[in-house]
């Protein structure tokens, strides 16, 4: 009998140890995000006079070597591979011919504190097409509607993994009506991924103002309609984190200034 009791010790002890170890915390933020948003913002909406509105523009360059372009392996998914005749490459690091980078988020980081801007009612659109996200990167305003489409003949799931907003994960079969979503808190950036097709990733920058831009096929950005003032312009790239990533600019009424940034691989 002693023997039987003893050999039970092993699994029972393992179980006990496991449950003891498991009592760690699971950090789920259950705050009412909408309520938080409503109490923090000033009530009066800032109107920018178009006659004095200023502009900041420029390019984002890269320095040094970049990782080689990665071809997306969709072969295992005929429903995705069949949508392309050409090889599809990852959009993580996309250099342009003029040594600039595509898909860099550029935004006013500081200088607009205390101002409130109207929330657009026009939705931003995020499409799933060819088993990639279109666009790869975009900015929206806090609480601006985001319209999510599935233009593919295959099932996706849409899964943003924010740190400051609430996480969600929802499926989208082909031909379903678009999903309307919004993000009630500022966050640069929210990764969005599809767990069905793990190469699919996109980023959404959520700001309490409309002053942001994403670099294009020649590395350019432009932020218009700014009230005159002193600003810190910041940039964010998914992979390249080092280099010149912020600039301070002072903009007079109707002024247009150019600032360039340079990113490089972490050494």
């Amino acid at each position: 009998m002693m023997c039987l009791k003893n050999y039970l010790c092993l699994p029972v002890a393992l179980l006990a140890a496991l449950f003891a170890g498991a009592c760690g915390s699971v950090d789920i933020d259950d705050e009412d995000l909408d309520a938080v948003d409503g109490t923090e913002a000033p009530a009066v909406v800032t109107r920018v006079d178009p006659a004095t509105a200023a502009t900041v523009n420029g390019k984002v360059f890269f320095e040094g070597d970049l990782p080689r372009a990665r071809r997306l392996a969709m072969d295992a998914e005929p429903a995705c591979a069949g949508l392309h005749t050409e090889p599809v490459y990852s959009e993580v690091v996309v250099p342009n011919d003029n040594k600039t980078l595509r898909h860099v988020f550029v935004y006013v980081k500081e200088g607009l504190e205390g101002m409130k801007f109207e929330t657009p009612t026009e939705p931003a659109v995020l499409d799933q097409k060819g088993c990639i996200y279109l666009p790869h990167m975009m900015g929206v305003q806090v609480n601006q509607p985001v319209r999510i489409l599935n233009s593919d003949p295959t099932t996706h799931n849409v899964h943003p993994t924010p740190r400051n907003n609430r996480e969600w994960n929802e499926s989208m079969a082909p031909n379903v009506p678009p999903k309307m979503k919004k993000f009630p808190r500022e966050e640069v950036m929210i990764p969005v991924k599809c767990n069905v097709h793990p190469w699919m990733k996109s980023y959404i920058g959520v700001l309490p103002h409309p002053f942001f831009s994403v670099t294009d096929g020649d590395g350019s950005f432009e932020i218009t309609g700014l009230p005159p003032g002193e600003y810190t312009i910041g940039i964010w790239h998914e992979f390249l984190k080092e280099g010149v990533t912020t600039h301070k600019v002072t903009l007079a009424a109707s002024e247009s200034k150019s600032v360039d940034f340079t990113l490089k691989q972490a050494s």
Partner: peptide
């Protein structure tokens, strides 16, 4: 395969 959340429900 990072498939844990490919089925959301």
């Amino acid at each position: 395969n990072e498939a844990g959340l490919s089925v959301p429900d």
